Amino acid sequence: MVEVTISVEGMSCGHCKAAVEGALSKLDGVAKAEVNLAAKNVTVQYENGKVTEDALKNEIEEAGYDVV
């Protein structure tokens, strides 16, 4: 299991948190996604080989948020 923290701009409320966590959690191989609104990031635990960090970032951007 790999853990990565990704900086995300544009998240400001509970809906944003739920949208990003939900988008990431639906990816095959993602075990856990937890948004920290104050720190403006999301920490993701995922299975290496099933999903890539680039795929995680693309999913966040598809949900309407900016990866920095």
Results as ranks from 00 to 15, higher is better:
32 K>P: 02
4 V>P: 06
39 A>I: 11
23 A>G: 06
3 E>I: 13
64 G>K: 04
14 G>L: 10
59 E>Y: 04
23 A>Q: 02
17 K>M: 05
44 V>T: 11
49 G>S: 09
43 T>M: 04
48 N>S: 15
48 N>K: 15
64 G>M: 09
37 L>Y: 00
49 G>R: 05
61 E>W: 13
2 V>E: 06
42 V>E: 08
12 S>A: 15
54 D>P: 06
23 A>P: 01
67 V>E: 06
59 E>T: 12
51 V>K: 06
50 K>M: 10
62 E>R: 12
7 S>A: 15
67 V>Y: 06
10 G>Q: 00
34 E>V: 13
49 G>F: 01
47 E>K: 09
4 V>G: 06
9 E>K: 15
47 E>F: 03
53 E>S: 15
45 Q>T: 15
40 K>V: 11
20 V>G: 00
15 H>L: 11
51 V>L: 08
28 D>I: 08
13 C>I: 05
9 E>P: 01
30 V>G: 05
58 N>S: 15
53 E>G: 14
7 S>M: 13
53 E>K: 15
10 G>F: 01
59 E>F: 03
22 G>F: 01
45 Q>L: 13
3 E>S: 14
16 C>K: 06
4 V>W: 03
32 K>E: 10
5 T>M: 10
24 L>A: 04
27 L>F: 02
26 K>Y: 10
40 K>Y: 03
17 K>S: 07
58 N>C: 15
48 N>D: 15
13 C>T: 08
3 E>W: 11
38 A>R: 08
40 K>M: 13
65 Y>V: 11
42 V>D: 00
43 T>R: 02
8 V>F: 02
39 A>E: 14
36 N>H: 00
55 A>C: 14
63 A>E: 12
47 E>R: 07
5 T>E: 07
8 V>R: 01
41 N>P: 04
13 C>G: 07
64 G>R: 01
38 A>Q: 09
9 E>Y: 09
18 A>K: 08
41 N>M: 04
45 Q>G: 11
49 G>N: 05
50 K>C: 02
52 T>S: 12
49 G>V: 12
65 Y>A: 01
29 G>D: 06
38 A>H: 00
42 V>S: 02
12 S>D: 13
29 G>R: 06
15 H>W: 08
6 I>K: 03
39 A>Y: 01
